[in-house]
Design a protein around this nucleic acid. Structure first.
Length: 1136
RNA sequence: AGUCUCGUAGCUCAGUUGGUUAGAGCGCUACACUGAUAAUGUAGAGGUCUCCAGUUCAAAUCUGGACGGGACUACCA
């Protein structure tokens, strides 16, 4: 096998199929790990997807990122094990099954047994496993799917139980009431997922009330510590009204005691929660005022407390300090006076009279110490009154703040959504129309009316806001206290925050902002799910709940069962083999308490996020296998994980929380969170919109590599990506097309010359300048790519490779070196060229391998099969290239860049004056102010000359007096010194004449006169560039200026013609299908204008076209007509 | 509503510690090249850097606000 494979065209999908077959046949994935068994490991966790839905294109991006870094680290020599996993529990699966069976949650256990239902879930959960495996393979994601972790496995669940017991023993697991979204119409709690379904939030118009809670009179406060402010407030109010005691204001005679009443104003959009009120919450730093005014409904004198910032919502500015004595029932702008001001924190502890007392909402029933003012951080002054009516039963915030302040709880509404029987005239009434009763009367309105009459309402109005509805019944949800088990994450909050700071987040903002804030505002983790298909909570309780038992392993469970059989006389049979830990079996197990009472399992399931968060240990079946600690040490924490940014508060959080709680450690050291994949117009992809991209079709049509490359290089992974197939096509054309072309070019000539890299490696220092340059660039690239990938900056890495391939390798090195490959004998220079290009291609294939594993390996193998240079048969078994610093020559890279600029400028002048490149020209002039630049250009003069077809380069120094200089102020250096004078100084510099510039250059300084002031500037304050060489064709770019001599002498003309002839003959050779090595004889028709060219450049022409001779004839038969610089003639070519 | 994120050419994106002519690729137009040819080069057109205000001698860049897209959390008076 001594020939490089050549191809007719680039067909990436077919390359990928070949490579997949090769990988499989050679078992390369396994090999890539096996050969590094003894090495340091790089720990990676695969976030488990759920296989009950089809994989989408958004899965391809996160898996590309995972795969890329795992491959990269493997090539760097680490052992990177990648165990696949499946997330198998949870609500989405249950909903899917319900839908498929056409049942609802209520039917489970009735129309279908829990056993059958769960079996169905178990079946459904792996429904698309095949599809997932297929996409995994096709996209080139190397992950071990032969031995995945599955969250419903007994072993997996056993570890979860172990973890739960650890938490239980650390007193981090507790049961409590929590406020959850609940649908009275459906009789079921709703998950946040259900609440986030489209159409759940609707605009509704509700009756809202600003309720007035009267401050308790000091006299009624026996038994409680008196708040001094309480007495003061009453006295202030009484004193304020004192002068009016005998006046008939407000539509009645003022009663002194009534006038001394002080009310808190609190707004609610759910008046039905008022009977359950237990507290009023104020913001500790909010300013509040006591206002003397009139009740707008009863017109009685009154005094209210509300946030100062919200006065404008209830009182007209023009009525401030209005005359109270003039108030009548008809007064539009109710007069008001501010009597006092205080901060929220001062109000804390004030007591008020219950607003709507009934039999069922007494202080005793509430428990705790209700009807007090408390403080809470969540209070704002954006709407309402700055005082929040707090009903701990019906709001999560309320509940939290209520618990913290021990104000008890009142639940005056039952689970059907109606007031209980102890709510006076409202007993039995539904708070919303849950039963579709045509005669339903809004209970909120009646409550509001009652309050208006009693003087406890300040404002009643309809208010439109969004409110969640049950997606199944379309009825408003209410927040309802339900029993639940919690993990006390707040206990380790500070530690979690501290450890989070050590995690390398990509992007940083997700870790600091989104995740950091989330940790700051952390609440305890509600672990309970009242569903059927999930990990059962391993807690058993006696009926009175006075004894609890948390089970931490299957063995322990079996032992406890045996104990129960013994003590309770039951006959339960439980073996490890026959065990299913799910419902309903787990629920049937009865254990015995220490005091001998039967215990039943707490019916809840565990949040699926616990399943996935415990995956680092559960996938190992920790600690139930051999050498658990050693095993854990090798697999925890992860060095790297990656998932979508939507996992920030999901998987990323639960991993972190459990890592901290169980092991006081981070669970991952680095995390890449990728953004969303949107459609090409920037809309979210969704099935209903029909804009989802099918990853199978995409890969099949455009290849996995192009897709992967596109996903990685188009935008940073964490920016949301507008997915556009056109972009993939572009990548295919641009990157892979160019790489392919370059390889093809190499293969074509290397095969001709039998280059197989059998010669010794020619020391780079001995190679031509251009070879040293491309190798320098190549090794700079290796350095950059390595750095970027180590930094988890794949986009930068990919773009650096694109730049190298396109701008440096293909468009410069190969283009300039073409001749070296097809011209001349197979000797030193040619071998240099082959070795150099080979090394570029080989290295590039290895650098590319993590991102585009198929194409890279394909190219690598094509090269390596022939040369056998590398011991590894696949790029993925090879080592990642190491930059050789000795190859890197910054000076060389700089001057080549200079050469590219110079050529580009010359070409643009040629274009401007319309002289084609094939026409040689005598010289260019380059004004050089900087000796370093001249030195640099001199070293690459040959290259420039041949590239732009000129004979010589001359350098102009300013002494020659030809150059017209331009001076520009250097704002950066000048700005700092000049400050406000900058503008006029800049203007003065722009006005400097040629001789001024000369003086500056000579003296290295110059004194400007600006606004009558003398200001000295130095060389560092300006840029001086040669702008023009009068009388020449000139162009410039940045600081380089070039003048081109466009005189075409006769000799140049001849040479141009000769080149033109060569060009035409070459074309004919090619069209006639001659081999590149065929020798020819040329007969050319006589033309006076071309004669001298043919005679003078005979040797040149013959050498170029491999002609043995050129004969000029007066007449040519059967010739081909050609056009040489507008001269038409015939030419005939014969093979010798 | 809060938090995060994005907003630069028709499209996709760069844009260093603020520094005066804001770049690239694709697409478009014209020309050239023709032993990589389904390749390549050169040139041209195309911008209110989303808007407003501020800081500064100087703002795409810094600050504040608004608007728009997206995500997450929540829906709470």
């Amino acid at each position: 096998m001594s020939k490089y494979s050549e191809y007719k065209g680039l067909n990436m999908p077919s390359i990928e199929q070949d490579m997949l077959a090769t990988w499989k046949a050679g078992d390369y994935f396994k090999k890539s790990m096996d050969q590094r068994r003894e090495n340091e490991s790089f720990v990676f966790y695969e976030g488990p997807p759920s296989a009950n839905g089809m994989p989408g294109i958004h899965h391809v991006i996160s898996r590309t990122i995972k795969d890329m870094f795992c491959r990269f680290k493997t090539m760097q020599g680490y052992l990177v094990e990648r165990k696949a996993g499946w997330d198998t529990h949870g609500l989405p699966i249950e909903l899917f099954v319900e839908k498929e069976l056409g049942i609802t949650k209520e039917d489970i256990g009735k129309k279908i047994s829990v056993e059958d239902y769960n079996n169905k879930c178990r079946e459904v959960v792996m429904r698309y496993k095949d599809k997932w495996e297929e996409i995994t393979e096709k996209m080139g994601y190397w992950v071990d799917m032969s031995n995945p972790y599955v969250t419903f496995d007994n072993n997996y669940i056993e570890t979860l139980w172990w973890a739960l017991k650890e938490l239980y023993n650390k007193d981090l697991l507790y049961k409590s009431v929590s406020i959850q979204p609940y649908s009275p119409a459906a009789g079921t709690g709703l998950s946040s997922a259900e609440l986030n379904m489209p159409g759940t939030y609707k605009d509704v118009k509700d009756t809202t009330v600003v309720a007035m809670f009267s401050l308790a009179a000091p006299a009624t406060l026996s038994g409680f510590t008196l708040h001094t402010l309480q007495t003061t407030l009453h006295e202030t109010a009484r004193n304020a009204w004192e002068p009016f005691v005998n006046l008939p204001i407000g539509g009645g005679l003022l009663a002194a005691e009534k006038a001394a009443e002080v009310y808190f104003m609190a707004w609610t959009t759910t008046p039905w929660t008022l009977p359950s009120n237990c507290g009023l919450t104020v913001g500790p730093n909010i300013e509040y005022v006591l206002v003397q005014t009139f009740n707008p409904y009863t017109h009685q004198p009154t005094n209210v407390i509300l946030a100062k910032g919200l006065l404008g919502k209830y009182f007209k500015p023009e009525a401030q300090s209005g005359d109270l004595t003039l108030y009548t029932t008809d007064t539009k702008a109710i007069p008001w006076h501010i009597l006092a001001e205080f901060k929220g924190s001062e109000l804390e502890g004030l007591r008020y009279n219950q607003l709507l007392p009934f039999d069922g909402n007494t202080r005793e029933i509430a428990g705790g110490d209700p009807f007090r003012v408390i403080v809470g951080d969540f209070v704002t002054t954006e709407d309402g009154t700055g005082i929040v009516h707090t009903a701990p039963a019906f709001g999560a915030d309320d509940n939290r703040v209520g618990k913290k302040n021990n104000i008890g709880i009142l639940t005056m509404v039952d689970r059907q959504g109606k007031f209980n029987d102890f709510t006076g005239e409202f007993s039995g009434r539904y708070v919303k129309n849950y039963k579709d009763d045509p005669d339903y009367k809004d209970v909120d309105v009646d409550i509001a009316v009652k309050m208006k009459i009693s003087g406890n309402a300040f404002k009643v109005e309809k208010y439109e806001h969004t409110y969640p509805h049950c997606w199944r019944t379309d009825k408003p949800v209410l927040y309802y206290p339900l029993d639940a088990w919690f993990i006390r994450t707040t206990a380790v909050k500070d530690r979690m925050i501290e450890l989070n700071k050590t995690i390398n987040w990509k992007p940083k903002s997700t870790g600091e902002g989104r995740f950091g804030n989330w940790l700051e505002n952390m609440v305890d983790w509600n672990l309970s799910r009242s569903r059927y298909w999930g990990t059962p909570l391993p807690i058993w309780a006696t009926e009175e709940r006075d004894e609890l038992k948390c089970i931490g392993s299957i063995d322990e469970l079996i032992a406890e069962v045996n104990k129960a059989n013994e003590k309770l006389g039951t006959n339960q049979v439980l073996t490890r083999e026959g065990l299913d830990m799910h419902k309903p079996y787990a629920d049937n197990i009865i254990l015995v308490s220490d005091s001998g009472k039967p215990m039943r399992r707490e019916p809840d399931l565990v949040d699926v996020w616990f399943d996935s968060g415990a995956m680092p240990y559960a996938q190992l079946h920790y600690p139930f296998e051999q050498n658990p600690l050693d095993m854990l040490k090798r697999n925890f924490p992860a060095d790297f994980i990656a998932e979508g940014v939507d996992q920030t508060r999901g998987w990323f959080y639960t991993l972190h929380a459990l890592g901290v709680m169980l092991f006081d450690s981070v669970a991952y050291k680095a995390v890449v969170s990728n953004g969303l994949v949107l459609d090409s117009k920037g809309n979210k992809m969704s099935k209903s919109k029909g804009n989802v991209v099918d990853p199978f079709a995409t890969i099949e049509k455009y290849s996995a590599d192009a897709t992967r490359w596109y996903l990685v290089t188009n935008a940073s992974p964490w920016d949301s990506l507008k997915f556009d197939l056109e972009g993939i096509k572009e990548v295919q054309r641009k990157y892979f097309g160019t790489l392919y072309n370059t390889y093809q070019f190499f293969a074509l000539y290397a095969n001709v010359d039998n280059f197989t890299f059998k010669e010794d490696y020619i020391p780079v220092s001995q190679r031509p300048e251009i070879d040293r340059w491309i190798l320098s660039s190549l090794h700079t690239l290796v350095k950059d790519v390595t750095r970027f990938l180590n930094d988890y900056e794949p986009t930068q890495a990919g773009r650096a490779m694109e730049y190298f391939l396109d701008e440096q390798l293909s468009n410069w090195y190969v283009r300039l070196c073409r001749r070296r490959f097809w011209k001349g004998e197979y000797e030193f220079d040619k071998i240099c060229a082959y070795q150099t290009l080979y090394e570029c291609l080989e290295t590039l294939s290895l650098l590319t391998a993590p991102i585009a594993p198929f194409f890279a390996d394909w190219m690598y193998q094509n090269l390596n099969k022939v040369s056998g240079r590398n011991n590894s048969v696949s790029a993925h078994l090879a080592d990642f290239p190491l930059a050789n610093e000795t190859y890197i020559d910054a000076d060389l890279e700089e001057r080549m860049h200079l050469a590219q600029d110079v050529c580009s400028i010359v070409l643009s002048i040629r274009k401007k004056v319309n002289i084609k490149v094939r026409q040689p020209l005598q010289r260019i002039l380059i004004p050089v102010m900087d000796p370093h630049i001249k030195e640099q250009i001199e070293k690459i003069a040959e290259l420039i000359k041949s590239e732009v077809n000129i004979k010589e380069i001359e350098y102009l120094t300013d002494n020659d007096g030809f150059i017209k200089k331009k001076i520009k102020p250097n704002f950066k250096s000048l700005g700092a010194r000049m400050g406000a004078k900058m503008k006029s100084v800049a203007a003065a510099i722009n006005l400097m004449q040629q001789n001024d510039i000369n003086i500056l250059e000579q003296d290295r300084s110059y004194v400007l006169t600006v606004d009558g002031e003398q200001i000295a500037i130095g060389m560092e304050d300006v840029d001086i560039i040669a702008e023009d060489v009068p009388g020449w064709s000139v162009a410039n770019k940045d600081n380089i200026t070039i003048a081109l001599d466009i005189t075409i002498t006769e000799k140049l003309q001849d040479e141009g013609n000769a080149r033109e002839i060569v060009n035409r003959v070459q074309k004919i050779r090619k069209e006639s299908g001659f081999e590149v090595t065929d020798r020819i004889i040329v007969n050319i028709e006589e033309r006076e204008a071309l004669k001298s060219a043919i005679i003078n450049f005979n040797d040149y022409i013959c050498a170029e076209i491999l002609a043995d001779s050129i004969n000029i004839s007066a007449d040519i038969q059967d010739g081909i007509e050609i056009d040489v610089n507008d001269i038409v003639l015939k030419i005939s070519i014969l093979k010798t």
